[in-house]
């Protein structure tokens, strides 16, 4: 089982990410938005945890009514330079009030963890799983932010 960072700790990952063709399995699973939209009846009866995977191309707003069904939303970063899902994470937290786990998957690097966590992402499948311990330090790169963020909803200008 692979290790991930979740809530600033290294933990065993207990989720399985199913391809659209893969047979359903017991336990915690994630599916693509396409599969969710096609099979939501069946998937609603799944007994383990259920998660959905979104990329910046996927229509976030379409799954908002279903968010209560998911314990996990996986945001895909096909390249670390593709920053669309930073906005998705913020919208999921700030606007759609999603309280479950939000995970970054794909080209997720040490140096992006600080910004990702400020946007509300709380678990990380790093592109290089060999450097997890080292990566934990990245959450403390900065002790302050000017902006209103998910971790600190009051912008600095109201606190100084």
């Amino acid at each position: 089982m692979q290790q991930i960072i979740k809530d600033r700790e290294i933990v065993e990952d207990n989720w399985q990410h199913l391809d659209d063709e893969a047979a359903l399995v017991a336990g915690n699973i994630t599916v693509s938005i396409t599969r969710w939209q096609e099979q939501h009846e069946t998937l609603s009866h799944h007994e383990g945890g259920l998660g959905i995977r979104l990329s910046g191309d996927d229509p976030l707003e379409e799954i908002v009514p279903d968010l209560g069904r998911f314990q996990l939303v996986v945001l895909l970063f096909p390249a670390f330079t593709d920053g669309r899902c930073y906005s998705y994470a913020r919208l999921l937290r700030d606007r759609y009030n999603f309280k479950g786990e939000i995970r970054a998957q794909g080209d997720v690097l040490y140096d992006q963890l600080f910004y990702m966590s400020q946007c509300g992402i709380n678990s990380f499948e790093l592109a290089n799983p060999n450097r997890l311990t080292q990566a934990l330090a990245a959450f403390d790169d900065f002790s302050e932010s000017y902006q209103a963020t998910v971790l600190r909803p009051e912008p600095l200008f109201r606190r100084r």
Partner: peptide
């Protein structure tokens, strides 16, 4: 004020 808001904005770095 814009400089501060835009500096290290976590959502808009990429």
């Amino acid at each position: 004020i814009i400089r501060q808001w835009s500096t290290f904005h976590p959502e808009f770095a990429y």
